[in-house]
């Protein structure tokens, strides 16, 4: 894994059944693992956005996967970036035992150090939320596990936004519409 690069692949698709299956088979054929996956409606109505991270040997592999994804009929646009091009974030939730937290004493220093949001406090459990890069959410997990114990832990897939000024999907769609309807080949 050490000499592989993490690529973030962003995909806009129609909100159709089975799109994820079409995407994952392209990864499967090349024996690439999906590290993280996040899917949600995009800013444009009826269009979904997938953010996928995967380790690949080199850029040509990322380029080939993106082209193969891009050519699926239900996909509007796919592209790839490395971490340098992106502002990205993950979310993590941590459930702790209230009793153990009380035993531990003050957690103010943890909350300040990690910029934790407390989402819920009950007699039994306390739920923390931390947003950040993998290393940050993992760092908190390790510290909590060591000092208090973590009952449940979950981390979201990455979401990302490009730093550069790139073509917006709406522009791409407008351009395609302007180029007009395809004359059928046969």
């Amino acid at each position: 894994m050490s000499n592989k690069t993490l690529y973030t692949i962003t995909i806009f698709s129609e909100n159709a059944v089975g799109v994820l299956n079409q995407i994952t088979t392209i990864f499967t054929r090349r024996q690439l693992n999906i590290e993280t996956l996040s899917v949600s409606p995009s800013a444009l109505e009826g269009i979904h956005k997938f953010t996928i991270t995967t380790f690949a040997e080199d850029e040509s592999v990322a380029k080939k996967i993106v082209r193969q994804i891009d050519k699926r009929v239900d996909i509007l646009k796919a592209f790839y970036n490395t971490d340098d091009d992106l502002v990205y974030q993950e979310l993590a939730l941590y459930k702790l035992s209230t009793e153990k937290v009380m035993e531990h004493g003050s957690v103010e220093y943890l909350i300040r150090k990690y910029n934790i949001r407390v989402l819920e406090v009950t007699e039994d459990n306390i739920v923390f939320l931390k947003a950040g890069h993998y290393e940050e959410t993992q760092g908190l997990f390790e510290e909590l596990a060591e000092k208090i114990g973590v009952l449940q832990f979950v981390r979201s897939g990455r979401i990302a936004i490009t730093k550069s000024k790139i073509e917006r999907l709406s522009d791409i769609l407008a351009e395609r519409e302007a180029l007009g309807h395809c004359e059928q080949q046969l």
């Binding site: 009929v73 509007l76 395609r176 519409e177 007009g180 309807h181 080949q185």
Partner: peptide, 12 residues
């Protein structure tokens, strides 16, 4: 059908 916004069959 002559157009699908997600499908660009013949590049210019």
């Amino acid at each position: 059908t002559t157009f699908l916004r997600s499908y660009y069959p013949v590049p210019h």
